[in-house]
Design a protein around this nucleic acid. Structure first.
Lengths: 180, 180
DNA sequence: AATTACATACAGAATAAACTGTACGTACAA
DNA sequence: TTGTACGTACAGTTTATTCTGTATGTAATT
């Protein structure tokens, strides 16, 4: 096997692995493959180049790039004289990991907390009324679960604060430097 | 609105919210709804009870329960005299969160590390041969990226160790107690 | 041993998600 | 102002996932 082929396949192997494992970030293999391609490409790419490289439609490239941008995994870059949009992969994987929690998880936590608080209020109102022993018991147990959930979400948010503030890196040191 | 309805809908709201947000753990709304139902049900449930409650097929209940079991979110319990399998929701959400990383993320990290190490070995072999300046440059930059990734995965594993060993709770205290 | 009650494998149907091609709007170029 | 190059909205198609019903195997019950 010639060196060009080896170089190619070494890179492809990793791109393919990444693409199949990025489901943890909620993205499909195709989008993962695009990220991998951008990550290893040493120059920013246009939509047409991506389309060419991945043999997919330009529309797909456009929406995939948007998804990756929303996840802070890709950014648009400017190069004077170039009319087409250029995109490059963000390479700080620690930051991507942290942003994922700051954005995706916090969004969910916030929705859950809102729903739970609403339900807590409703149950507390019902608790004022005349109730059978069983009804009261049911409500109290539900309230206990709601309160537990609220505490858990507080804990999660504190954890995410810890990530976001970079204090986590005092605890677990970041080694190596970002590739350029 | 009568109290029975309010109690019902307060619970349903939260179950529904949970069900739509459990995609972060990689499960569908249906499976999330099942978890929510089990979480609020104060007794373990049989597949037939789940099927009845969620108006879905027993087959779906069976496979969903398996998925939740794999994620350490549900467990089978024994009750003498009862022939059907009984399942109940695990209620330690902190543990569920931690297990998710220990299991799902570590699995992925391990696959990625394996692929990257293989590619590193291949590129190092090629590096021995005669190469143009450009080829050498490309290889060195790829190697730099591979090494960066390896360091990142080490960091992630350390983070997961920190979770798994419960040291994380020294740092961010767990408040409240688990609902029974 | 025969019967019944159960969980799940499997194939097919229903549903949802991903992907494409065309059409449109916008911005730059002539 | 007209023409050209570009990105993306949208509708329809393809592909993948989820869900169901039937069939099968196993374990408890008679």
């Amino acid at each position: 096997m010639d060196k060009k082929t080896i170089m190619e396949s070494a890179r492809e192997r990793v791109i393919e692995t990444i693409s199949h494992n990025m489901y943890l970030y909620g993205v499909t293999p195709s989008i993962g493959r695009l990220y991998g391609t951008l990550f290893f490409n040493n120059e920013p790419m246009t939509l047409d180049e991506m389309k060419e490289e991945l043999k997919m439609s330009k529309t797909s490239m456009s929406t995939s790039v948007r998804t990756l941008t929303d996840l802070n995994m890709v950014e648009k870059v400017w190069k004077k004289g170039v009319r087409k949009d250029l995109y490059e992969a963000k390479k700080d994987w620690y930051q991507i990991f942290i942003d994922f929690f700051s954005n995706e998880w916090r969004k969910v936590v916030s929705l859950n907390v809102k729903a739970i608080n609403q339900s807590i209020r409703e149950l507390k109102t019902v608790l004022e009324e005349d109730l059978t022993i069983d009804e009261k018991e049911t409500i109290l147990r539900d309230l206990e679960k709601f309160n537990y959930a609220i505490e858990y979400y507080k804990w999660l948010n504190q954890l995410f604060d810890y990530f976001e503030s970079n204090q986590i890196f005092d605890l677990i040191t970041k080694e190596g430097k970002e590739p350029y």
